[in-house]
Write a protein that binds this DNA or RNA. Sequence first.
DNA 1: CTTTCAAATGTTATATTATTACATAGTGTT
DNA 2: AACACTATGTAATAATATAACATTTGAAAG
Lengths: 135, 135
Amino acid sequence: MAKMQKEYNLSKNQQIVFDIIEKSSEPVKAYSILFNVKKKGIKAPPQVYRALEKLIKLGKIHKVESKNAFVACKSSNCEISKATAFSICEICEKVTEIANNKLSNFLNSFEDKSGMKYKKYNLEFFGLCKKCKKT
Amino acid sequence: MAKMQKEYNLSKNQQIVFDIIEKSSEPVKAYSILFNVKKKGIKAPPQVYRALEKLIKLGKIHKVESKNAFVACKSSNCEISKATAFSICEICEKVTEIANNKLSNFLNSFEDKSGMKYKKYNLEFFGLCKKCKKT
DNA sequence: CTTTCAAATGTTATATTATTACATAGTGTT
DNA sequence: AACACTATGTAATAATATAACATTTGAAAG
Ligand SMILES: [Zn+2]
Ligand SMILES: [Zn+2]
Ligand SMILES: [Zn+2]
Ligand SMILES: [Zn+2]
């Protein structure tokens, strides 16, 4: 029953870029991707950035704004990639996508006096991870 | 009783950069600042980026990560600049700092199973502002 | 099968954002 | 004065991202 999710019809470049991000244990930068795919025939920034843009639209990856880096979506709840939350360790820089219903419910239903209706959000928490707290 | 907050001892460059950001009704980009302060003797990027860095540390300004732009702090609650929330209109790009106790209380006390203690966060909401909703 | 249209690709050049490195100058304290 | 600390000035370059245009691919319709 695991991995029932269909692997969608990614194009060649999209699949190459996605594979790199998915395999990485940490956020990947665009030019690091570019460097790593030179051997596969992708030679120029636009090819990478286009794939990234599409993958974001599909919700397969997210951009970690404070790091200008990209991670594969782990929560599969944000298929449309419109509600993302991350925890970021300030020492080891580990980034983890937060999947927490209480949090997402709260934020998805948040309204303030401005009269603005929020369709989308990005939240980045900073602190010390368990490991780094010990030191 | 308004504006009791002391105007701190900003250095010359810090004050120049801060004035520009504070006077602007929208987020200001670093190189836009640079362009605007050429006449005041600030000539190179590091001078601007250093001032920005210090102003962020002081909590006088915030960086809007999704836009690589800077806004003056309006809430005066985030002196230490460790908890910021913005609403961003996807059409007119208007950015507003959100000061909402329910939101900040919720986020400041948020904990998840990861065992990570969060000291700081940045939240960016996207949607349509009142004006743009009408069109 | 051919026409068609949208999506994806390839390529060159350039724009935008940010930092490194090193030299110099001001400021307050002992 | 000697010291430490913060801020400044300057040149060069690194890192991130987009513009513009030509070409190819792939699915859908006729
Ligand atoms: Zn996700
Ligand atoms: Zn850590
Ligand atoms: Zn603020
Ligand atoms: Zn608007």
